[in-house]
């Protein structure tokens, strides 16, 4: 669709986004014997490797004592995988769908949402396994689990914001997705997933705490691990939601400004 889509049009097309998200998943694993199971096997394997390296190789223990380092690591990894997958696939949302941009009238605003939704669908599977695993290990979050949707929404919104920005820019400059993948790796190590704030002097920890993904990871831990005492601090929560909303709004605005040229360039 050449002009910006109106909200009713986007709403009417919501079913298509789900289809595109499903198609993206099915397409990624088409031809493999295990199919979509790979979407779970891959994060599980990476988690196992991290677990082995840090718990048995480097013998890292949690400075906070309980909960165990392993539980903190796995929960953090799960949240991060969802984010990084949504962002890195989101960068290709428009360029990978040239067939839709150029051939059919379609509300293009929906395109960046498909990879985000696909990542969240996988993430729900990972979470289900994780919650079951934690429960078997004697760590059942109970009512705390009801906080999970909030943090799931948080990670989705943040990822969608990035997806809009990157998908639009990627059309014109193909280096964008490569750069994003690189920055994501740096960001991973900046986020308290394999380490924790307690390992740093307080001044450093304060600075690192403003990382929006730190809020997400801490939130996941609060929701899933009963031993974690407190949810993320209020000022971190406020700054996260402000950042995420601004990023999303500016990403959508940017996308709508550039979209008229998509069909010309692709």
């Amino acid at each position: 669709m050449a002009r910006p889509a109106t909200f009713p049009e986007i709403w009417r097309s919501r079913g298509i986004v789900l289809r595109l998200a499903q198609a993206e998943l099915r397409n990624r694993y088409s031809g493999s014997a295990l199919g979509v199971l790979w979407a779970l096997i891959q994060p599980a394997m990476v988690m196992a490797v991290f677990w082995f390296v840090f718990s048995y190789g480097l013998r890292v223990t949690s400075p906070e004592g309980e909960p165990a380092f392993v539980a903190r690591l796995l929960v953090g990894l799960a949240a991060w995988f969802c984010f990084s997958e949504a962002v890195s696939n989101g960068a290709h949302a428009v360029t990978g769908s040239a067939y839709l941009v150029k051939k059919v009238a379609f509300p293009l605003e929906l395109l960046p949402l498909a990879p985000v939704i696909a990542a969240v669908m996988v993430h729900l599977g990972v979470l289900a396994c994780l919650v079951a695993g934690l429960a078997l290990g004697g760590s059942w979050g109970g009512w705390r689990l009801l906080h999970l949707p909030l943090y799931l929404a948080a990670v989705s919104l943040l990822a969608a914001g990035f997806a809009y920005w990157l998908a639009a820019l990627q059309v014109f400059q193909r280096d964008v997705a490569q750069t994003a993948t690189l920055l994501l790796q740096i960001w991973f190590w900046m986020t308290p997933i394999v380490w924790s704030f307690a390992m740093f002097p307080p001044e450093v920890a304060t600075v690192l705490g403003w990382n929006p993904m730190a809020y997400v990871v801490d939130g996941y831990r609060y929701a899933l691990l009963p031993e974690v005492a407190a949810p993320p601090a209020l000022h971190h929560a406020l700054s996260f939601w402000l950042t995420a909303c601004l990023l999303f709004a500016s990403g959508v605005a940017m996308f709508r400004r550039l979209r008229a040229d998509f069909a010309d360039v692709l």
């Binding site: 198609a23 099915r26 397409n27 067939y99 150029k102 051939k103 059919v104 009238a105 379609f106």
Partner: peptide
């Protein structure tokens, strides 16, 4: 619309 010999087909599906 069948524009330029095609439709909005995803080649991998």
């Amino acid at each position: 619309a069948l524009l330029e010999l095609g439709a909005g087909f995803n080649r991998d599906l």
